[in-house]
């Protein structure tokens, strides 16, 4: 299978370091500001995907495929995590009829 692009000159790995740091920070800000539990899970997915972007950039830079295998395993673990997280969320919705994260304060002292 030939390469889609014959050249990748002009892309720097520094640009991807900055881009994935910005995406990770956006995910962290969303995780802290939003109250809806499903949006919080989505922000976790965004942070995972920014890390994937950085891993693929360094894998292409060093010309070694191991990091892309790690990205594959991160996708697998994220799928399992999303499944269990969403079923916990359905369980929480059955308790309070709401998925606002502030309502679940039974353990507060």
């Amino acid at each position: 299978m030939p390469a889609v692009l014959s050249i990748t000159q002009g892309l720097t790995v520094d640009y991807y370091v900055i881009l994935s740091s910005i995406l990770f920070s956006i995910g962290a800000i969303g995780l802290m500001t939003r109250k809806n539990m499903i949006v919080m899970l989505m922000c976790i997915e965004l942070m995972l995907n920014s890390v994937n972007l950085l891993l693929v950039a360094f894998s292409s830079y060093f010309n070694q495929g191991d990091a892309q295998i790690f990205v594959f395993f991160i996708v697998v673990v994220a799928a399992a995590e999303a499944t269990v997280g969403l079923s916990i969320l359905i369980l929480a919705y059955r308790n309070k009829r709401n998925i606002d994260a502030d309502l679940f304060n039974n353990l507060k002292g």
């Binding site: 299978m1 390469a3 692009l5 014959s6 050249i7 990748t8 000159q9 002009g10 892309l11 720097t12 790995v13 520094d14 640009y15 370091v17 900055i18 740091s21 910005i22 990770f24 920070s25 962290a28 693929v56 950039a57 894998s59 292409s60 830079y61 010309n63 070694q64 495929g65 892309q68």
Partner: peptide, 26 residues
């Protein structure tokens, strides 16, 4: 958080590390 990440990496960011053509992703 963003400031700390970028400040920790600022010596490495020189915009000269170009990604050359690689076939590992096929």
């Amino acid at each position: 958080l963003l400031l700390v990440i970028l400040a920790a990496l600022k010596d490495g960011i020189t915009f000269t590390n170009t990604i050359v053509k690689s076939d590992v992703g096929l």
